[in-house]
């Protein structure tokens, strides 16, 4: 009795872990897709960070912690950085679009056709 339980447990573990190794072809594109999506995520994070910095800056100016000159200088710098990131995101999207012939909404990742200007799900600009 005991030996069966043990065998069953060991066998189950081996089966569950070994199963994906039986048919490797199914997972071919996983790694390449991962690389693109990581870069995309990184860019989106960069964009969020800059926007947050902009909001913070505006707020700090409003609560009187920054001089006008400093505010304007920093504001201009963040704007340039934001523009740069947005351009990189656009380039990456164009690249994946060419590769796959379709696009995802940058915010909610819903599928969108190539001709769409706005996402049908959340209304974000594509």
């Amino acid at each position: 009795m005991e030996i069966f339980v043990i065998l069953a447990l060991v066998l189950a573990v081996i089966l569950i872990i070994g199963y994906p190794l039986v048919n490797p072809a199914r997972y071919r594109d996983l790694i390449e897709r991962g690389r693109t999506s990581a870069r995309y995520n990184d860019l989106c994070d960069a964009r969020e960070n800059i926007f947050e910095a902009l909001r913070d800056l505006q707020f700090e100016y409003a609560t009187g912690k920054l001089s006008t000159a400093d505010y304007q200088q920093l504001d201009a710098r963040y704007q340039t950085q934001a523009a740069d990131v947005l351009r990189q995101i656009d380039a990456l999207q164009a690249q994946t679009q060419n590769a796959r012939g379709r696009r995802d909404c940058p915010r909610c990742h819903a599928a969108a056709s190539a001709s769409d200007k706005f996402c049908a799900q959340c209304g974000a600009k594509i």
């Binding site: 870069r39 990184d42 860019l43 994070d45 960069a46 960070n49 800059i50 710098r77 340039t80 950085q81 740069d84 990131v85 990189q88």
Partner: peptide, 13 residues
């Protein structure tokens, strides 16, 4: 600011 911006010419280095 991050690695993604490494090539940005606008970034003060």
């Amino acid at each position: 600011m991050a690695s993604v911006l490494q090539n940005s010419p606008a970034k003060p280095v």
